[in-house]
Design a protein around this nucleic acid. Structure first.
Length: 899
RNA sequence: GGGCGGUUAGCUCAGUUGGUUAGAGCGCAGCCUUGACAUGGCUGAGGUCACAGGUUCGAGUCCUGUACCGCCCA
């Protein structure tokens, strides 16, 4: 970057971002106790502001979803930092056990080996090497986005502290009876060879069949018995019953009788159970307790055995009858159907839409299997989480997600935390030869069996590991040092905001809430802010196979992180998905370019008289004249609006307001007005100096407002700005702007004159007057506006391209020309050689204005004439209507007089 | 089947506790190479706020229902 006062002639995001990043890297500004902060003492008097960063997957690369969350969190943290709070944004990465193992398995396969070949120890060693390669990649990419996290506190869900937190948490839950080991049906993924939680199972839809199969009566022939309907004939080998609805008259006589399951020749009872839908299929269903959740329930209610008939690869078990033993489940389905047909037991086959659950990771169809697993008792934990949101201790943004939250937590089922994987935290449970369970938080394991005292070296540790989300669930406090009582934990727990995607509300947020309340005693965050998904311009989910993925790094290379951040922020609404189109990115880029050029102009327009340091009091110059007051008022309104928007997580609204403040107000109006004064050597030097310093002060405010969204360019420009005494070295640690004392509540005459300028321009356009021509304008203005108009004379001339400009009390008697009415101002443009057609066009325009004004007047008058309006509406609204009527009458009178 | 959300300009979306003149960006049309910026400036066209009822002095905003779209849970 070039020296102060000299911004490069064209905006290069890459150059600015590189240079600013280097300056940041040389400081500890991201630390809540950073030395860069301007007021360390003041900081202590304010509450800290903490966001714990959702840890990205260790093996992952940056995608646009990361870019969104990094931007939003960084925005909040940067603003809090500027407000003088101790702002902590704590980063880290997640070991992502199933996802990482899935990725590494593919790599190992390519290397011609396999997980089984390597064995657990060597595989984990290979995994650690892999982690070391990838761990910092994603965080380095976050830095390119401008993330101002405290990198010195970076954590990993598999580091030593996290491991201790996991053991302690589990041991505590076990002690409290909130963790238990039990046999239950789990979602088994035959591809990943592990169980997965309900949340990791994805319901899908596919065309299948429904088979109707006859189970003959025990001792009966092939026409006796009952016809069951099933979508999974292959599980027939594990059937231990047939169920019918108790009220189904078709089967009343059969209940209690026994029927024969083909091939296995097992006599099983016909039971009556209300879960059966009479209208489905034949109204009779086979019961396979070990391979279907509903059947499991029925089996338990009717004391049916539950033989497992599918192994961990979802093949028919070895002790099943030939030829099915060892067969894959889908082959077995065909084979069994064929065999049934041969036996004459297949009654019919009908098409049917099935909804098999698939593994979120591998997409294999999940197989329910009975297994002994570790579970977390969810109900008592969920109740506390619900209490926290109901009491308002934790607030969900947007609020409507509370309903989803309620729904899920109310009907929550126990959480299966066992995974038959290798990469992850091993469950700290040990079993002795007699099967007693000992759970401990000691890294080296228990000293002996907690029940029978069997020696530690005879104990076997559980081979299962924890669901990744168990360690993630501890993240809000394990990152702060828990289970130790660290100063960080005391200072930063609970955090203010948990910002994450609504897609992991249950996976993660609910678990953090449940575990946080249980283990820490208080909810882990005050606000849960949920963002939506970033989609492609057509609203499609981005995916590599579709090829519609926006790569944030290429976007940054092309237009800069600031533009990407601005585009994402301006498109976001709490909980809502957004479409990211190239036009949006382009607009953001243009905005950055606009800001850069505005700054270039301001810095280059310094009057010779504006020597010396920047005045430390902003409002000295702003109070000096109409322009300063106007600017102060505009800035104050912008600050108020941005504060209000951000206070309610209206990020997009805030970004739009800043965009307007910079582009429409500052560039299109303030600079254009100031330009005239600054270029006018005949103006008093003091006036030019005041105007220039006002521009500088305003730019400074705007940079501060925009900084949380676009940190690089604002920092880069700010560096070139004359500094005030007491300002820190970095904009990142400078103070958040406040209202200006010089602002005014009264309408500024500048706005009134700008309205006139706009009307004159419109008149010129409709009348097709040459854009470059100087055209005489006479304005009739009330006395107060005559004075301010004189002060703005050269600006009005230039902006409206009018000359000579006459400002007086009244218009001379009707003459040729174009009438212009704007607020309290009436004016006449007098083009030297106006052609008749042009004048007609303008007259038509004015006619339309008149009609519109008359319609509005009629409406307003109608309202005021209605006693129910004047009687019931608030006084302010009535007064507003009255004012409006007066204005409209005045305007109409002037429009009519002139035409 | 249950729940939640959406439907506003050609497109993408804003729209605070109901206040009467519904906004922005992009796109479109016309004009402008004016010494910060053509990644720009100026001006303009374009909306019965999905539909049908209701509450109210007043409804894009609140209530009921309908249609369509999307998401979540089963």
């Amino acid at each position: 970057m070039t020296a102060a006062h000299e911004l490069g002639p064209s905006y290069s995001a890459a150059e600015v971002e590189r240079s600013v990043a280097a300056r940041w890297a040389a400081t500890d500004y991201g630390s809540p106790d950073g030395r860069e902060t301007r007021d360390a003492e003041g900081r202590e008097s304010l509450p800290p502001f903490t966001i714990i960063m959702p840890p990205p997957n260790v093996t992952g690369g940056l995608h646009v979803g990361h870019a969104l969350f990094v931007t939003l969190e960084d925005l909040m943290v940067r603003r809090a930092r500027m407000q003088g709070r101790a702002a902590l944004w704590l980063p880290g990465v997640d070991h992502a056990s199933i996802a990482a193992q899935y990725v590494l398995d593919r790599i190992v396969e390519k290397e011609g080996s396999s997980r089984a070949d390597l064995g657990r120890a060597r595989y984990l060693e290979r995994m650690h090497r892999f982690m070391d390669e990838t761990r910092n990649t994603i965080l380095a990419q976050f830095q390119r986005l401008g993330a101002s996290a405290d990198w010195s506190r970076t954590r990993f869900t598999m580091d030593e502290v996290s491991s201790r937190a996991v053991r302690t948490a589990f041991a505590t839950l076990y002690e409290r009876g909130l963790a238990y080991r039990g046999e239950a049906l789990v979602n088994w993924c035959p591809g990943c060879k592990t169980s997965v939680s309900d949340l990791e199972s994805v319901a899908t839809e596919e065309q299948g069949s429904i088979w109707e199969i006859r189970y003959p009566l025990e001792g009966g022939d092939a026409t006796s018995g009952v016809v069951v309907a099933t979508t999974r004939p292959e599980t027939l080998l594990g059937d231990t019953g047939v169920a019918v609805h108790p009220d189904d008259p078709r089967y009343t006589a059969l209940v209690g009788k026994r029927v024969m399951v083909p091939f296995v020749n097992r006599a099983v009872p016909v039971v009556a159970d209300a879960f059966v839908e009479m209208g489905f299929g034949t109204g009779a269903v086979k019961v396979t307790p070990a391979h279907d959740p509903n059947d499991r329930e029925v089996g338990l209610r009717h004391n049916l055995p539950a033989p497992t008939i599918l192994d961990e690869s979802a093949r028919i078990v070895a002790d099943a009858p030939a030829p099915f033993a060892g067969m894959d489940r889908f082959k077995a389905r065909k084979a069994i159907v064929a065999a049934l047909e041969e036996l004459g037991l297949l009654v019919s086959v009908k098409p049917h839409t099935a909804n098999p659950a698939r593994c979120q990771r591998s997409n294999d169809i999940l197989e329910p299997r009975l297994r002994t697993q570790w579970f977390i008792r969810a109900k008592p934990l969920a109740e506390k989480a619900l209490a926290a949101t109901r009491s308002g201790a934790t607030q969900i943004v947007p609020a409507h997600f509370e309903k989803t939250w309620e729904h899920w937590l109310t009907d929550i089922r126990d959480w299966n935390v066992s995974r038959q994987l290798w990469w992850g935290h091993r469950i700290p449970a040990w079993y002795c030869a007699d099967g007693h369970i000992t759970v401990t938080d000691r890294e080296e394991g228990p000293v002996g069996c907690g029940t029978c005292g069997a020696e530690s070296n005879t104990l076997q540790q559980e081979s299962d590991i924890f669901d990744t989300w168990f360690s993630s669930g501890l993240w809000p406090f394990s990152t702060l040092g828990w289970p130790d009582k660290t100063p960080d934990l005391a200072r930063y727990y609970p955090s203010q905001v948990m910002e994450t995607g609504h897609d992991i509300l249950f996976f993660w947020v609910a678990r953090m809430m449940m575990l946080g309340i249980e283990l820490m005693g208080t909810p882990p965050f005050e606000t849960i802010y949920l963002h939506g998904m970033v989609r492609d311009p057509e609203g499609e989910k981005m995916s590599k196979t579709k090829g519609n993925v926006v790569d944030p790094l290429s976007v940054i290379d092309e237009i800069g992180a600031d533009a990407l951040r601005f585009a994402l922020v301006s498109g976001t609404a709490p909980g809502a998905d957004q479409r990211l189109a190239p036009e949006k990115l382009e607009n953001a880029r243009n905005f950055m370019n606009k800001l850069w050029n505005a700054a270039r102009y301001v810095l280059g327009a310094r009057p010779a008289e504006a020597t010396g340091d920047r005045p430390s009091a902003t409002d000295a110059h702003m109070a000096a004249g109409e322009f300063g007051t106007w600017m102060a008022t505009r800035l104050s309104a912008a600050v108020d609006d941005v504060d209000r928007a951000l206070g309610q997580y209206g990020f997009s609204e805030a970004s739009q307001r800043i965009y307007d403040a910079i582009w429409a107000e500052y560039c299109d109006q303030a600079i254009e007005i100031a330009k005239v004064t600054l270029a006018d050597e005949t103006r008093p030097a003091g006036e030019r100096t005041a105007v220039w310093w006002t521009l500088v002060d305003a730019l400074d405010d705007l940079l501060r407002l925009l900084h949380p969204i676009a940190p690089f360019i604002t920092e880069g420009i700010w560096e070139a700005l004359p500094r005030r005494a007491g300002d820190p070295g970095l904009l990142a640690t400078a103070a958040w702007p406040a209202r200006h004392a010089a602002s005014s509540t009264a309408a500024s005459s500048i706005d009134l004159w700008l309205d006139l300028v706009r009307e004159v321009r419109a008149a010129r356009t409709t009348a097709k007057l040459p854009a470059g021509a100087w055209i005489p304008l006479t304005v009739a203005a009330p006395p107060k506006l005559v004075t301010s108009g004189e002060g703005l004379r050269s600006a009005i001339e230039r902006l409206a391209r009018v000359r000579p400009l006459t400002i007086q009390a009244a218009l001379p008697a009707a003459g040729e020309g174009l009438l212009v009415v704007a607020g309290a101002l009436t004016a006449r443009l007098e083009p030297p050689q106006a052609d008749a057609a042009a004048l007609d066009a303008d007259r038509a325009r004015r006619g339309r204005d008149l009609v519109a004004a008359q319609a509005q007047l009629a409406a307003a008058e109608g309202r005021l004439a209605d006693p129910s309006f004047t009687g019931k509406a608030p006084a302010a609204v009535v007064a507003g209507a009255e004012r409006r009527v007066a204005e409209l009458r005045d305007e109409i009178a002037r429009l009519e007089r002139g035409s």
